[in-house]
């Protein structure tokens, strides 16, 4: 028997294709929307030779890792931000009444196919960036070049899930999650050296966003971290991601438990 998640996903895609014209406009616009990041980068380099001490060939690699990772995460779990809506309308109950994992169902039930175009575009852009950037290729870097965008995707997915789970405690949280999901993407698209003071400390290291694109890119480029991190830290991104995933898992499960005891 076919995997029920695959079947649900198929149904979701068929539903979306019911509104064909709107779907394709949405698909192309969403694709264009993520191309904006890249365009923005070139706009900035029109007026300045360097961003945070790095030239465009270096920054483009950071933007590309962040962009590819974010697009994948957004496609896979981005719609989890609708959890609020599911709780409010009682749809979460319907989900819990089915013999499947709640998170798994929520992800496929609201799968945003229109974001698929972005993943293709993000991946292509990453490949281009790899050829343009002065990467110091060796065996370890080849592996890290493959790991980096996937690592970024897992990191962002965990951020999406953790923030969505806030709704279990605080349903009227507005779009606070965007500060760290889309905000995280904006932060990671640039070298962390562009930011200063406690804000950089918080986003880059407190929340771990430096490990998404900035540090892996430095590792690939064979550059040392100018703020003063040891060179080995550039290779630690998967470990940081693991921690973030564990936090996401714990938050989600605690949230579901809370829903079970309060039902609101």
């Amino acid at each position: 028997m076919a995997n029920p998640y695959v079947k649900l996903l198929g149904a979701q895609i068929r539903s979306q294709l019911q509104y064909r014209a709107s779907f394709f406009l949405d698909l192309s616009m969403a694709t264009l929307l993520s191309a904006v990041d890249i365009g923005a980068l070139f706009l900035l380099f029109r007026v300045t030779p360097a961003l945070g001490g790095f030239g465009w060939r270096e920054v483009i690699l950071m933007t590309a890792i962040s962009g590819a990772g974010f697009c994948m995460a957004d496609l896979a779990v981005g719609e989890i931000e609708r959890l609020k809506h599911y709780i409010r309308t009682g749809l979460l109950d319907t989900v819990l009444l089915r013999p499947m994992s709640a998170l798994g169902q929520l992800l496929v039930l609201d799968f945003a196919t229109r974001r698929a175009g972005r993943v293709v575009q993000g991946t292509l852009f990453y490949l281009v960036a790899l050829t343009v950037a002065p990467v110091k290729w060796d065996a370890a870097r080849v592996v890290y070049a493959i790991v980096a965008p996937i690592n970024a995707a897992v990191f962002f997915s965990a951020v999406f899930v953790t923030l969505a789970a806030i709704a279990f405690w605080w349903i009227e949280s507005g779009d606070i999650a965007n500060a760290f999901t889309y905000g995280g993407r904006d932060f990671t698209a640039y070298p962390s050296t562009m930011f200063h003071g406690w804000f950089r400390g918080l986003f880059a290291f407190g929340l771990g966003f430096a490990f998404v694109a900035y540090l892996p890119a430095l590792a690939l480029l064979g550059l040392s971290e100018p703020i003063g991190l040891p060179d080995w830290a550039r290779w630690c991104s998967p470990l940081v991601t693991l921690v973030v995933v564990l936090i996401a898992r714990a938050t989600w499960l605690a949230g579901l438990r809370r829903y079970g005891s309060t039902g609101s």
Partner: peptide, 20 residues
């Protein structure tokens, strides 16, 4: 509360854009 959440998000983006 939702407005406070959104204002917080706006402030974070303010930091991001302003720094850049």
């Amino acid at each position: 509360q939702a407005a406070l959440g959104s204002a917080f998000t706006n402030a974070v983006f303010g930091f991001l854009r302003c720094s850049v």
